[in-house]
Computed example of a mutant assay.
Amino acid sequence: MAPMNRLVVALLLALLAFAAPAQAAPRVAALTPFSASTITRLGVRPVVLGQTLGGTDQYLASLRGVPVLTLTHPLGPNMEQLATYNPSIVLSSKTWQRGSAPMRRLGMKVYESDPTSVAAVGRETRAIGKVLGRTRAANALATKIENDVRAAQRGIKRRPRVLVILGVGRTPHAMLANSWGGDVVAKAGGQLLTAGLRSPSGIARISDEIVVKRNPDIIIAVPHGSPGAINKLAAYYQNNPSWRNTRAVKNKRVYVATGNQLLQPYPGVAATIRSVRAKFLKNY
């Protein structure tokens, strides 16, 4: 071997010997469906999940088998139970912000992330990537999500008047434009009949009389309750006699969404927009 070649080989071997080992994936507790689904797409498997408001129909198959923590107000997870999973990072939300200080006292890095609008999904994806040290992958994922959303909104031909109703038991609540479900339906081309209703949470309690007075073309009911009660609630909202004089009932356009896609945000929001357009709004 020529002297110059031997020198190059020696330098390469020296560099390999002193190279830093590959960075291990952080141990992450993902308390929201959005954060859990996002980090999975970034190549990080959470050590534990927070329970969801609805079903797990929007979760990736790769999240099956991950332990789940019960979340209760006002702190979120039980701190002792959370500590047994030894997470270095907790991805939480504003809902559980009172639990952030105790988590930090346990030595955990906490980031509160849960978008309430379609536009915020890309921004929060990039923020999570920065927290995890996966900036490049997060930028690519966020750009793909934003492009997919634009594609899902193409060709909207009709913008029907819609009430999106969160059914807490048999009490109707309107999902406003500042709620996740309301914003998704609006992005899909629905005109929300929520003028004059205000709520920081994006959910405003209404009455059956208000539903009739606003007379929507379409009602999308999202029943919310214990898993065993969902089917009964779905049947109730599908056939609520108090709404019989609305255009939605007369034209058989009362729909029930029993999954989790309108309750909590997910990275796959473009697929949700397409689903809302195809199943409910029919505005292609």
Rank of each mutant, 00 (worst) to 15 (best):
I156P: 00
P227L: 10
L106G: 14
N178H: 13
S37K: 05
Q58K: 14
Y284C: 01
L49F: 07
A221L: 08
A270F: 01
D217S: 00
L12Y: 10
F18D: 07
Q23Y: 03
V164D: 00
I218L: 00
A152V: 06
V269A: 01
G43K: 03
I165T: 04
Q261E: 13
V164E: 01
I156Q: 02
G55I: 01
G259A: 02
R41F: 06
T272Y: 01
Y266W: 11
A22M: 13
A204F: 06
T72P: 11
P26C: 10
A140T: 14
K109Y: 05
P67Y: 06
V90T: 09
K94Y: 13
T56G: 13
V68Q: 14
V48S: 09
D114N: 15
M4S: 13
R64D: 13
G107D: 07
S242Y: 11
Q58W: 09
G107T: 05
S37Y: 04
P227T: 09
H224M: 11
P87V: 09
Q153L: 09
L263D: 10
N260H: 03
G169T: 08
V276D: 06
S179M: 05
A14R: 07
L166I: 03
V149W: 06
N139E: 13
A119G: 02
L7H: 09
V168C: 12
T171C: 02
L71N: 03
D183H: 07
M175F: 11
I206Y: 10
R41T: 05
V149C: 05
D148A: 07
N86Y: 14
P46S: 05
R161T: 06
I89A: 05
A25M: 11
L12V: 14
Y85K: 07
Y237I: 08
V68N: 10
T38L: 15
I39K: 11
E80S: 04
L11M: 11
A17E: 04
T272D: 00
L141M: 15
H224P: 00
R27H: 09
Q261A: 12
V48K: 07
